[in-house]
Design a protein around this nucleic acid. Structure first.
Lengths: 318, 318
DNA sequence: TTGAAAGCGCTACCAC
DNA sequence: GTGGTAGCGCTTTCAA
């Protein structure tokens, strides 16, 4: 069970530990013949550097904490892929902490990150999170943080979010151009920033066209979409639908199928993460919010500030 | 940037570091008055224990490595949730490493886990992985490993997999009981263990009934299902479908919608992870492979052996 | 070109 | 009850 250490190697070769250390990392001071010998010994005795000791010594962990409001299938896999791709390349690992949409848990996770000495934090907030006071400590400690996707207005940390306004406008325009007259807009949790900005942009664009009747519903889950649609679909005859997310789209799709309303010429436009819904119905149209890209972007931003670039507090729209 | 250490606290209070350490963790030897003083000081000077030093000292990391073949939306989110729920409770973290279906990458990730001194490994194999020789080292080092879901026949480590035989049989029986006569079985990658066992069980059960015409296709992706279905749906008039996974089901669903074949009384039965497809079409039926449960089970098994239970090599079917 | 020694923060053993 | 000390494995001065 005991693993070979530098000291062990040093004893075997009758040289000092510092020399072994240097030889192992190709320090120019060491003669190439010694380097060879040391490396051979390391190989044969299966020497594995102890990352603990190294991190401890260098006072960094090469680990970043990823805190998300929930681990959903719609967004998380692609974001994880995006984050992985940049972090792994840089030799960093990350662990995932899910807040389960609880502010208290989010707070605890922040503490966890501080205690485990992460080099940085990637944070997407719960919908309970109303201010950033729980981040004061990380700010003080100068732990790099970048907030992504679910965020609140703040000027302390860099953030990267989807361009809700542009995307919702694009969707509205599509519906208008198709000549839709009675439109249903399906939105997520009414309390969310993201919902409000998409709602406003969508409504404003629709208003510019004339004679369009716009109905809106707010749903916190896929099932809630289905329930509300059950009623509202009876009362109106929509010729166009807008879903602000994959989650709401799933509910719409389900209801449409159930009422045999698919393939009926009705237009469906959604803001989507993109990996899932393309298989739902080929007639649906999407404005893509790419989670992978967001993950890459957020992780890169974090890497930059970890590596010493002065931390900025900008909000990037992608 | 310098953080308060135990030594700092000791100096301030004019006591020794060891006393501070003990006071902080409520050692019975320490007087309660001193404990109070120490804890107060710790509070006011914002003392945060350095997990690095602790881990380094105790020679454990409280971290486990999770290696998966890919980060897909179908399975991974629920498995992560299952794993989180047990690991977090135990004060463990985990980091996710995706092999991207490459054996070489899987091998590297194993190395990564060894180097970063994880306390255990949770592994789901790529479809390229044919033997477990890359696990010899972890075996030697006595690093606890449990393999889940995607695995190969081996007798070195504990594993937990879905009961493919039972589930495929159940699906076949359902189709038979519905009186289906022309059935299409949609299977995943033909080289996978999981595919073969589901295939065999499904075929055998169907064979027992008489006069059933069974067609099968093998598809490595959702898109491949759609392509193949494009042809095969023209040639035959199926009254029953079996999809062995969420991924294949997505393709089937998409094709059915496109050809306006949903709501046509055809039966669709699938083995599913369960979170996604319930929203696809309420008429579909599922045998649920619960990723959350599997995650919980696998993580528990790992925890047990990390905590010193003698490692077993059993294969659990759930 | 190599070695000796200190020290990262913490805990555990042994004294007293 | 409390303090002193050693040591986990590694890197990094500083000295030779």
């Amino acid at each position: 069970m005991k693993r070979t250490t530098i000291k062990d190697l040093a004893q075997m070769l009758n040289i000092s530990a510092s020399t072994v250390s240097r030889a192992l990392k190709d320090h120019p001071d060491i003669s190439s013949s010694l380097k060879l010998k040391v490396k051979e010994a390391a190989e044969t005795f299966n020497y594995i550097p102890n990352d603990f000791a190294i991190n401890f010594r260098k006072n960094h962990s090469k680990v970043v904490g990823l805190i998300v409001p929930e681990i959903s299938m719609f967004f998380i896999p692609s974001i994880i892929n995006g984050i992985s791709s940049v972090l792994n390349k840089e030799g960093y690992r990350f662990f995932i902490l899910s807040s389960n949409e609880s502010y208290e848990t989010e707070k605890e996770h922040i503490e966890t990150c501080i205690n485990s000495r992460v080099d940085g934090i990637l944070l997407s907030m719960t919908n309970e999170t109303a201010d950033s006071s729980h981040l004061n400590k990380v700010k003080e400690m100068k732990i790099p943080v970048v907030i992504f996707d679910k965020t609140i207005p703040q000027r302390q940390f860099a953030s990267v979010v989807f361009d809700n306004v542009k995307n919702a406008e694009l969707c509205a325009e599509k519906l208008i151009n198709y000549g839709c007259r009675t439109i249903l807009g399906i939105f997520g949790d009414e309390n969310l920033d993201i919902t409000q900005s998409r709602l406003a942009a969508f409504q404003n664009t629709i208003k510019k066209a004339e004679n369009i009747e716009l109905h809106t519903i707010f749903c916190k889950s896929t099932d809630s979409v289905k329930q509300q649609l059950n009623e509202v679909l009876k009362e109106h005859n929509f010729d166009g639908f807008f879903a602000m997310s994959d989650e709401t789209l799933m509910g719409l799709h389900s209801s449409l199928i159930k009422k045999n309303l698919n393939n009926s010429g009705k237009k469906v436009i959604a803001i989507s993460e993109g990996t899932l819904p393309k298989h739902l119905d080929e007639n649906y149209e999407f404005i893509i919010n790419n989670g992978f890209t967001m993950g890459v972007f957020a992780a890169n931003e974090l890497m930059n500030t970890i590596k010493g670039e002065s931390p900025n507090t900008e909000c990037y729209y992608i």
